[in-house]
Design a binder for these strands. Structure first.
Lengths: 245, 245
DNA sequence: GTCAATGTGTTGTCATGACATCCGCCCTCT
DNA sequence: AGAGGGCGGATGTCATGACAACACATTGAC
């Protein structure tokens, strides 16, 4: 036995390690590689694919980071047992809903540039009062209200339009605009809905809300987006995968 | 000018890349490396430390994964701007509270082996009805109730005692018992407290709770612990850092 | 029969070398 | 003054080689 069929295309601009990682991930998703199955050893894989061991290792490490497989020194590499779930990565709600087969829509409640409030200025590490986008959106899934999202972004970094926001997720717009978001610090909590919030979300006052504040940083380590989001606790939950190196 | 003083000990069993990563992380925490500061290039570092470039690269990648620094091809490596926060990794609430300077305590409500409920059996990927530990703990911070945690673990994997659970976090006990936990899939949500839950936590019925279910896997890809936790929304929040590779 | 030593295969770590790709700067040409 | 090209420097990718550390199975001695 030699595992799933994997072939690399050396003429492709896609890095070899990434090609390998993607094909393994796909094989796991398809069930071609069942939970608990052992992968070939790094040396075998390197030989079979015509790659060097570091390249194969990089591919496998990528999957370990995503929580798909597990390695044991001296033993081998196995697919994680149990159902494989996808971690929320750095995607927007819009994309997550699409992937889950639901129909996202967005109502933009506010889109304007304003002087930066001091709390946001601290988070974004910009001077208080400097010009920032302020954005408030009510998000729906299959027509049902799901979340209220409030975002702030330095005004000089991106150009936002109402049309784009109604059709796409914020992160997709930012990436399309050349912004390269690399990571985010998030804080997740729960609190009761105010009357106004409840009304927007179709809940009762005091209903449990899942809250998330997120500050995303780019390429240059600059904080480029700060968001305060509330989700209906009855309708939404976050999924996170933690993997040690 | 050549960055913080970093020295590696080749006689130490700690991997070189890890020594380097830890010392950089410490320098950032101390403020020795300020947000936005550029690190020396990989080649310079390799030369200065007497290491090869792959080793230096591995150290830096480690910090990128933790969200401490950011790399830009063709430009260099910078410390992330803004305050550096620590991500919750694979630690228990007990350790988190200790680090935050608070005084954790635990009241064990239940500790017994029981036939595995079917929902838990699915999560742990064990036969329904097989023997598992069932554990329910009320956690306090500085004497105030903070969370109720319910856990299930395959009975044959670990030995649990009441004394140990009152003094240490679950994960510390598991690791001390030779279990090597590598990652976890988590789902985070919010809901209203039932009357019983509210009473335990000193809240009112309907109070917002932060919920987390977590399934942790070990070395071998086996799911070894399943937990369903509820936290007082007014007292606790989770912090998560996401970083792309 | 039990236990210890040994052997084999695997992942973990580290070194060296090379080329690709991208960014930003400077210089030149228009 | 502006646009474009060239160049240096940085990270990204990939190859080859070597040894270490660990787990497990086998073998051997007692």
């Amino acid at each position: 036995m030699s595992g799933p069929d994997i072939a690399v295309d050396r003429s492709s601009p896609v890095p070899l390690y990434f090609q390998v990682a993607e094909q393994f991930a796909a094989a796991i998703q398809r069930g071609d590689l069942a939970p608990g199955d052992r992968l070939d050893s790094e040396l075998q894989l390197a030989d079979r694919l015509g790659l060097s061991r570091p390249t194969v290792r990089q591919a496998i490490q990528h999957l370990v980071d995503k929580g798909l497989i597990v390695r044991r020194r001296g033993v081998g590499t196995q697919v994680v047992r149990g159902e494989v779930r996808r971690a929320v990565e750095l995607t927007s709600l819009h994309d997550d809903l699409l992937r889950a087969g639901q129909r996202p829509s967005t109502s933009v409640l506010e889109l304007a540039t304003v002087p930066c409030p001091s709390a946001v200025a601290t988070a974004l590490d910009v001077p208080p009062g400097s010009e920032v986008w302020h954005l408030r959106r009510l998000r729906f899934s299959d027509g049902d209200p799901l979340a209220v999202m409030e975002n702030w972004l330095p005004a000089d970094l991106v150009r936002l339009s109402l049309d784009a926001l109604q059709a796409n997720g914020l992160y997709a717009i930012l990436r399309a605009g050349g912004m390269r978001i690399r990571g985010a610090h998030q804080r997740i909590g729960a609190r009761a809905a105010s009357a106004a919030e409840a009304q927007m979300l179709g809940e009762r006052r005091g209903a449990p809300l899942l809250t998330m504040t997120r500050t995303a940083y780019d390429d240059q380590g600059r904080y480029v987006e700060h968001g305060a989001h509330i989700y209906r606790g009855t309708r939404y939950s976050l999924e996170v995968t933690v993997a040690e190196r």
